[in-house]
């Protein structure tokens, strides 16, 4: 079984890339207002080839201002959360690790809730969520490194504790928020949604995402060695502490950027890396790119469902849990390689 994986992972990556491109094109055509594939390519080709417009102005602005930013963001967020999940699993030598393990999500939630309470508007909500998310993780790392005993366990436990502390803050804000408009806004944000994505959201998120994703891709081979623990890694010539710090910072950056624009989208960071492990094996050389592509593909498809299935949109966080949890149970109870 492993032999097949070894030789075919490049093929799998190629197939995933093609699928992702096809899904992007189809998603752009999907929606209540009709835009055909031909019109999509026409609009995209307008600047490059000077195609004569055979589409309406509404179609063009809908595509460029709404659908494409949202599609792009779905792909980026899916990619980032999955990559962060896979990285944390390696760094913490723990297959149960997910992107929110160090409190990035609960921090973002507090920041967003605070911004909504203060009535700061959507742009500042994103900024607040991003800043609070990073701040929470830095507190966790700062405190966790002072915990006696094993550093990895210390970090995870500190993550759980600080998350719970921060969540109590979020709950308090919900308590005092105006139940007419603020409370629903906070609740809706917490469910996670890509509804109302602005091109500005993409611009805001894409830089920290790339700053995080590129090192994760480049360092992916060395991530394998971290899964054997610090001492063994060191005897193999790796500065484990430094490498782990870099990987944690990058994973945190992409997680914070993702949750600050999309809200809480659960499960994807746990399920997708495991699905990718089944497909290409545990070697991060193949696992990391496969995880990134599958995460993008998965979240794009789920977002398509969330915006087209019913007339009112279902928050994507609900759907990822609805699909993710049963799927994960199927995955771990199926025959084959054990967890």
């Amino acid at each position: 079984m492993l032999q097949r994986k070894k030789h075919s992972y490049r093929v799998i990556l190629a197939i995933l890339s093609v699928l992702l491109l096809a899904a992007v094109a189809c998603s752009a055509a999907l929606g209540r207002y009709p835009i055909s594939l031909r019109e999509i390519f026409g609009i995209l080709g307008e600047k490059l080839f000077g195609t004569e417009p055979f589409w309406t102005a509404t179609q063009k602005s809908l595509l460029l201002q709404h659908r494409l930013p949202r599609i792009l963001l779905a792909c980026l967020v899916g990619c980032c959360l999955s990559a962060a999940g896979a990285s944390y699993q390696g760094v913490f030598q723990n297959p149960m690790a997910a992107p929110d393990i160090l409190g990035a999500s609960s921090g973002a939630a507090l920041g967003a809730a605070l911004a909504i309470l203060l009535g700061l508007g959507s742009t500042l909500t994103v900024v607040f969520a991003f800043a609070a998310s990073l701040l929470t993780v830095f507190v966790v790392i700062f405190v966790g490194n002072r915990v006696k005993g094993k550093r990895v366990v210390g970090l995870i436990l500190t993550g759980i504790m600080v998350s719970s502390l921060v969540s109590s803050g979020t709950s308090f804000i919900k308590l005092i928020a105006d139940p007419q408009d603020q409370l629903p806004a906070i609740t809706y944000w917490l469910m996670g949604s890509l509804n109302g994505t602005q091109p500005e959201d993409v611009k805001f998120a894409v830089i920290p995402m790339l700053i995080g994703l590129i090192p994760l891709l480049l360092l992916r081979w060395r991530l394998n060695i971290l899964t054997f623990g610090d001492e063994e890694a060191k005897t193999m010539g790796i500065n484990a502490k430094r490498l782990r710090t870099v990987v944690i910072i990058c994973s945190t950056l992409v997680t914070a950027a993702s949750v600050s624009v999309s809200g809480m989208i659960g499960w994807i960071g746990l399920v997708i890396p495991h699905l990718a492990r089944r497909l290409v094996g545990n070697n991060y050389k193949a696992l990391m790119p496969a995880t990134m592509l599958m995460g993008a593909l998965f979240l794009l498809i789920v977002d398509d469902i969330s915006r087209t299935l019913f007339t009112t949109e279902i928050p994507i966080g609900i759907l990822t849990s609805l699909i993710g949890a049963p799927f994960f149970i199927y995955l771990i109870s199926r025959d084959g390689e054990q967890l």
Partner: peptide, 30 residues
């Protein structure tokens, strides 16, 4: 240091199942 001296732990049970070749390749990382 790793090119001069290597450590061989007691056969352990790592969290993730790597292929034997991958494990040996990890020795070449330095």
């Amino acid at each position: 240091l790793s090119k001069n001296i290597a450590y061989i732990p007691q056969s352990h049970n790592p969290v993730f199942n790597y292929s034997v070749l991958d494990i040996v390749l990890m020795g070449t990382t330095a």
